[in-house]
Simulated assay, not measured.
Amino acid sequence: MRRIYLIPALVGLLTSVAVGPVAAQGAVPKQKAAPAPKASAAGTPVAAGATSAVAAETPVADDKIKAIDGFRSAKFGMNEADVRAAMTKDFNAKPDAIRSQDNASELTHSILLSVPELLPNGGTAELSCVLGYKSKSLIQVGAVWSKGTDTAMTPEKLFSNANILRAHFMGEGFKPDSIAVNMPVAGGIVMFRGSDAKDRSVILLLQGTFETKESNRVLTPTSLLLFYVADAKSPDIFKLPPGQF
């Protein structure tokens, strides 16, 4: 059974990115977006100066900011039947191709579908739609590309997919002071993070293993994760009430 990446990891990820980039030489002040590092046979080089956050220089009206309401026909707040119908519509999926999985600790419910060419020429991804603990409605949509979703996947393909998606999101009009790119975190790089006026977020995370080669940190990608999150800071998951233990 494949691992489903869920909300709590994103909370820590958003927090670590918000306080500033983590690099080999420590925190780096906010600066203009740096170009994405180029892939090589050895992996993806990550220099300290390659990390960046994009701060707002000019206020942007809320009605000019891109709204994040889900992914394709699957919209935040939908129930399971509607999410399954949206998957069927968007990907011409047969009912028995759509699977489900419960998270025993968060008490959330996920609906899963393998999607060939979710990103053109990007290989097969696994799409997951997560329904909240209390609401039983859609709170997160995720897509994962890896060897586990496509045996033909390569580090070069993962990095190419990440670059294509990052370039797309950079032109989408997210809230300027929420945008971060090329941010090293534990186990990978946040290629892009951005939020809308209601703090609903898109996160693009390239995961892999880091090595130090010729004074550079080099990431060899093993998976690419894309998340659309309704509320990453206060997710609808099970938590023990205060005072019980």
Score class of each variant (00 low, 15 high):
1 M>P: 14
2 R>Y: 06
3 R>T: 11
6 L>Q: 08
6 L>W: 00
7 I>G: 10
12 G>A: 06
12 G>I: 02
14 L>W: 01
15 T>R: 14
18 A>Y: 08
19 V>Y: 12
21 P>M: 13
22 V>W: 06
22 V>T: 10
27 A>W: 04
29 P>Q: 05
31 Q>K: 13
33 A>Y: 08
33 A>W: 06
36 A>N: 06
42 A>R: 13
43 G>V: 00
44 T>Y: 15
45 P>V: 02
46 V>H: 03
47 A>I: 00
47 A>D: 15
50 A>N: 07
57 E>I: 04
59 P>S: 10
61 A>F: 06
69 D>S: 11
69 D>F: 03
71 F>Q: 04
73 S>M: 08
73 S>H: 14
75 K>T: 09
84 R>Q: 13
87 M>Y: 12
87 M>W: 10
89 K>R: 15
93 A>N: 07
96 D>R: 15
98 I>M: 04
98 I>Q: 04
99 R>C: 00
100 S>E: 15
102 D>I: 11
106 E>Q: 14
106 E>M: 13
107 L>M: 10
114 S>F: 07
114 S>I: 00
115 V>G: 07
116 P>Y: 14
117 E>K: 15
117 E>W: 01
118 L>P: 08
118 L>C: 03
119 L>F: 02
122 G>N: 09
123 G>P: 05
123 G>D: 12
126 E>V: 11
127 L>D: 03
128 S>R: 02
134 K>R: 15
134 K>W: 00
136 K>W: 05
138 L>Y: 03
140 Q>W: 04
142 G>W: 03
144 V>Y: 00
148 G>H: 08
149 T>I: 02
149 T>H: 05
151 T>P: 05
153 M>L: 02
154 T>W: 07
156 E>P: 04
160 S>I: 03
161 N>Q: 08
161 N>M: 10
162 A>P: 04
162 A>S: 14
163 N>H: 09
163 N>G: 06
164 I>L: 12
164 I>H: 12
164 I>T: 15
165 L>V: 14
166 R>F: 01
167 A>M: 07
167 A>P: 01
170 M>N: 06
171 G>H: 09
173 G>S: 07
174 F>C: 11
174 F>N: 05
175 K>H: 13
182 N>A: 12
183 M>P: 00
185 V>W: 06
188 G>L: 05
189 I>N: 02
190 V>G: 01
191 M>H: 01
192 F>V: 05
194 G>H: 02
196 D>T: 03
198 K>G: 00
204 L>D: 05
205 L>Q: 06
208 G>W: 01
209 T>I: 12
210 F>A: 06
210 F>E: 02
212 T>H: 07
212 T>S: 11
212 T>C: 03
212 T>N: 12
217 R>K: 13
222 T>G: 14
223 S>D: 07
229 V>R: 03
232 A>D: 03
233 K>P: 00
234 S>V: 10
235 P>H: 10
237 I>Y: 07
239 K>Y: 03
240 L>I: 13
240 L>Y: 10
241 P>W: 01
242 P>H: 08
245 F>Q: 12
